[in-house]
């Protein structure tokens, strides 16, 4: 069995973690790129994505090759425990869907995976969330670098009130990516997000002139432009019509070849269609605190989850009967 093969394209970003400095190195070898990612700089290991990919895709291995792992994770808002005892691994270059009734903590879990929770006053995580084996919440870890590597797409499209071009160029600029030609970066990101053909003649126009579905693809393109390894999506299609939704789903399947994707969705069919693995959460009053606390009920390969779930609650939820 060999899930790994060496690959040296695409993810060589040539990033200078400090500031943009075009003068130091014009020849950006993959070695220097990886040095820029090294543990000393950000307290994070070098991403798996630069050297590994599935050869057997679309076959889903029985156990995920972990990019991110949650180990007995509890998440609190102040004294309120929103999520309890989550242990699961998110597989490399897989799409993982998080499903479950409203309020069970899907968004909370998702936000904890790139430290977006840090921005909510009072939010805190216990247990261990690791990224390539390193504690993502470790004292020497730079949350900003975590978010650069683990991007996020939100429920409501939130393009910046700038031009389409500026929306894409923003990330590479502010994260200090060494970019030889920004036009190429913009074109590549938009192409990968299946938006290029629709916007190539109006790059200088405001992103607000785009339709909701186009705006959401722009947000995906914007995320891709900083070359993350993981993309988190919180109900990315909930504000979109079926056709726009279809396009985003196609895009996700496309992106899975190079990115690890974790998506929260309320749409069962969507999870069944796109996800390799599905995790079902629910909320119940906890014995010790009395709070309605979210917990992970079942996590398995999607086909198994939807055809033959082992937990009665999963089966009820999936078949539309709430427990």
């Amino acid at each position: 069995m060999n899930f790994y093969s060496t690959r040296t394209t695409d993810h060589d970003t040539g990033r200078d973690p400090g500031d943009t400095d075009l003068s130091t190195s014009s020849a950006t070898s993959s070695a220097t790129a990886n040095e820029a990612f090294s543990r000393e700089d950000h307290g994070l290991a070098k991403p798996l994505g630069s050297s590994v990919r599935h050869e057997h895709w679309p076959h889903v291995p029985a156990e995920p090759i972990a990019v991110i792992e949650c180990d007995d994770v509890d998440i609190y808002y102040g004294d309120f425990r929103a999520v309890s005892a989550v242990t699961m691994a998110y597989g490399f270059n897989e799409i993982t869907a998080l499903i479950g009734p409203s309020g069970c903590g899907k968004s909370t879990v998702l936000r904890s995976l790139n430290r977006m929770n840090d921005l909510i006053p009072g939010a805190r995580v216990t247990g261990k969330i690791s990224y390539h084996g390193d504690d993502m919440y470790g004292p020497e870890v730079d949350a900003i670098e975590v978010r650069r590597r683990i991007g996020m797409v939100f429920q409501k499209p939130n393009p910046f009130p700038k031009s389409i071009y500026a929306n894409i160029a923003y990330g590479p600029k502010v994260t200090g990516m060494r970019v030889s030609n920004m036009d190429d970066v913009v074109e590549e990101a938009l192409t990968r997000a299946a938006l290029w053909d629709e916007v190539k003649d109006k790059l200088k126009e405001s992103a607000y002139g785009l339709s909701g579905g186009q705006q959401q693809r722009l947000c995906i393109a914007r995320t891709i432009a900083v070359k993350p390894e993981v993309i988190l999506m919180d109900e990315p299609c909930s504000a979109l019509d079926p056709i726009a939704t279809q396009r985003i789903e196609d895009l996700m399947s496309e992106l899975r070849q190079d990115y690890t994707i974790i998506i929260v969705t309320h749409n069962m069919q969507q999870a069944a269609r796109v996800a390799d693995r599905t995790a079902f959460f629910t909320a119940k009053p906890s014995e010790d605190t009395g709070d309605r606390t979210g917990l992970l009920v079942e996590y398995d390969v999607t086909s198994k989850m939807f055809s033959n779930p082992s937990d009665k609650r999963t089966e009820d939820y999936i078949s539309g009967r709430f427990g």
Partner: peptide, 25 residues
Amino acid sequence: QALRQGSLALGANRMRTTLRVVFPA
């Protein structure tokens, strides 16, 4: 708030988010 989140989620720090997204908006 969504604009700040969008910027921070790209790996921009808070100062850059303030100066390049929030301030122009």
